[in-house]
Amino acid sequence: MIRIFWPGLRRCVLIGKKVLCGLLLLLASGCAYSVHQVYVSDNIPFAALENGEVVKGQGEQFVIFSFTFDSDYVEKARQDLISNCPKGRLTSITTQHSTSLGFFSWTNKVLIQGLCVSNTKT
């Protein structure tokens, strides 16, 4: 019985292996990231979460073959954060620096989140 079905079975296993390898390639070559650091600042002067609004600022830099000549995306993230809280103070700031990995290229990202507290609330 096995002898009859063996060539067919073998073919199925070979096709199955290729399909599995293809699926693995598809899955694993999907977006991969590396988080380098997450820094939480203090909360001075302190404010509860309900007294403010959580705002965020982001900056990105696309890099090919590691040729980068500046790191302005960091200042851009800070400006973005400040523009989302033009009249209040920002406290409880979380700074995340990560990289989105790719094919001979990657994107450096900075995400800054903070609690925007307007001057009328403490």
Partner: peptide
């Protein structure tokens, strides 16, 4: 072949979601 698609500066092994640390501010509060 997959490693060629995961090039760049890294700290530790690559993960498939970078959003896992975004809710820390809420957890602290």
């Amino acid at each position: 072949l997959v490693a060629l698609f995961q090039m760049g500066p890294r700290s530790g092994a690559p993960v498939f979601s970078e959003k896992y640390a975004e809710k820390i501010i809420y957890q602290i509060h």
